[in-house]
């Protein structure tokens, strides 16, 4: 048995490795080039001195017109350890999502990147600098879990449904714990002068979740 039946007007979701993970039957050989390119770019930015400084979120520089920093700040990192964990999560989630639905992946990437920076701009006025990909990772995670949930519903797969619910509840719980306790659980990678920003994870998750609903709302079914 394959998963679900085609519904008129639906858009195809799921090809290749990700489609196997997410329930689509057909494998695609398409490479997640955007994911690899962004991961590589983050690495290059970190390794070449001076570039990160030009791309990171810097409140005053943005005020002076350097608006690209609102998006590029997510590709910059404070330390090698910070870069490693952020990019590792990005690779795992990016490969899955890009091969499943590239437009959705792009939407989450750009939407969460921009909305996180705007949230920092408006709600954290004391934050003069920001770097890191984890807010975008949170958006990708929410989108992936949304697709997982959708497929579980269609397949009437209770185990997968509970698993997906547990993942998203746990993740949101972790974010709220960070917000309530004003701390980043277990994070110790950015250096002593930098604080964790749970708001970025919250905004990223919210954006990812919203986009997956919008995208899948327009195309509610997975194809055979």
């Amino acid at each position: 048995m394959f998963h679900g039946s085609p519904i008129d007007g639906t858009r195809e979701v799921g090809k290749g490795l990700a489609s196997r993970i997410l329930g689509s039957p057909s494998a695609s050989s398409e490479l997640p080039v955007l994911t690899f390119a962004i991961a590589l770019l983050s690495l290059v930015i970190f390794c070449i001195p001076g570039i990160g400084e030009f791309l990171a979120f810097d409140r005053v520089a943005v005020e002076q017109g350097e608006v690209w920093r609102l998006l590029t700040s997510h590709l910059t990192h404070w330390s090698a350890e910070h870069l490693f964990w952020d990019v590792l999560a990005f690779l795992i989630l990016g490969i899955v999502l890009e091969r499943t639905d590239r437009p959705l992946f792009l939407g989450v990437l750009l939407g969460s990147g921009l909305s996180i920076s705007l949230a920092l701009w408006f709600f954290r006025p004391e934050m003069t600098g920001y770097r890191g990909l984890s807010g975008v990772d949170s958006g990708l995670f929410a989108a992936w879990v949304g697709i997982l949930l959708r497929n579980a519903q269609k397949d009437r797969d209770r185990l997968q449904w509970f698993f997906a619910v547990a993942l998203i509840v746990g993740f949101i719980g972790k974010i709220f714990w960070e917000l309530l306790t004003a701390s980043n659980v277990f994070v110790d990678s950015m250096g002593v002068g930098v604080v964790g920003v749970p708001l970025a994870h919250l905004v990223g998750t919210a954006l990812g979740g919203t986009l997956v609903i919008l995208f899948l709302g327009a195309a509610p079914a997975l194809t055979e």
């Binding site: 934050m127 003069t128 990772d137 950015m190 964790g196």
Partner: peptide, 15 residues
């Protein structure tokens, strides 16, 4: 408030 620097970081456990 006093100025601060922020980072979006994931802990190894979450990853």
């Amino acid at each position: 408030p006093t100025p601060s620097l922020g980072g979006g970081a994931l802990d190894p456990f979450s990853v």
